[in-house]
């Protein structure tokens, strides 16, 4: 039986994000977390391979302790095991530091055939972690995948490219990132939902991963945010009257303020 590891992320529910004023990173502990929507297709792809060829599917997530309910919900979708990778030392990691952490966690879970991730997260929106993690593990990465076929023991990815659609055959193990658009994702199972209280994720801290503190967290992140500008919102219903020219000027001013115009 082969093994697929799906890396998922909890992201702040849009509109509830708070940025730490000192470090300019997200205060993840205080946010209301939802499953990163692009991870849902990634889970679905892994579960379809489980249905088809009996792969074991493990879901792992790097995040704070308030990720546990989300991991339980992922268990309800049908995965075989859930892991939380959590340690104060991981907080503030940029994509390189995150990839180091995930790469180490994945090596602890090897051997595996496939690592599946969503193409990007809706908070950072970099899409960098899958290829970075793959490179650190010296594995091929196949991005923007719409579908994974498993035929005669071989993996074929149908992926979107800038100039068209590719059918790529690749060896395992490999890291695959899945596009957010998919025809169908399954709902959770009622049987699993009813027994959720008894399910807890296995926890991996830096004690198990044993990473050098200089390579993780804020200190391990070469990219640093030095400043943030928050967009302010005008309250509804502000009405302006005047000549077309001055009103148009006002609109341009508002649009620039909000970043819709350069």
């Amino acid at each position: 039986m082969g093994r697929i590891v799906v890396c998922i992320k909890g992201v702040p529910k849009p509109g509830t994000v708070k940025v730490d004023e000192e470090t300019h990173t997200l205060r993840r502990e205080s946010a209301e977390l939802i499953l990163n929507p692009p991870d849902r297709p990634a889970l679905e792809v892994a579960l379809r391979l489980k249905d088809q060829a009996n792969f074991e599917v493990i879901a792992i997530s790097m995040g704070p302790p308030n990720m546990v309910p989300l991991l339980q919900k992922v268990y309800a979708l049908g995965v075989d095991d859930i892991y939380l990778i959590s340690d104060r030392a991981f907080a503030g990691s940029d994509t390189l530091a995150t990839s180091r952490i995930l790469a180490r966690a994945l090596s602890l879970l090897s051997p595996f055939d496939l690592v599946v991730m969503g193409a990007r997260s809706i908070d950072g929106e970099t899409g960098q972690v899958p290829p970075e993690t793959a490179s650190l593990l010296n594995l091929p990465s196949i991005t923007y995948v719409k579908e994974i076929r498993f035929v005669d023991g071989k993996f074929i990815a149908i992926r979107e490219d800038d100039f068209g659609e590719e059918e790529v055959e690749f060896p395992s193990p490999a890291v695959v990132s899945i596009v957010p658009e998919i025809d169908y994702v399954r709902p959770p199972s009622l049987k699993r939902l009813l027994s959720l209280k008894e399910i807890t994720p296995k926890i991996l801290t830096n004690a198990e991963l044993n990473l050098d503190e200089a390579s993780i967290g804020l200190s391990g992140s070469p990219t640093q945010v030095v400043d943030v500008f928050e967009k302010t919102f005008v309250s509804r219903g502000e009405i302006f009257e005047g000549e077309p020219d001055e009103l148009a000027e006002k609109l341009i001013e508002v649009l620039k303020e909000k970043g819709f115009l350069a």
Binding site: Y184, R186, P187, P188, S189, L190, K191
Partner: peptide, 11 residues
């Protein structure tokens, strides 16, 4: 599709 979803949800 909704029938498939209901089936997968154990309903």
């Amino acid at each position: 599709t909704p029938i498939k979803a209901l089936a997968q949800a154990d309903l």
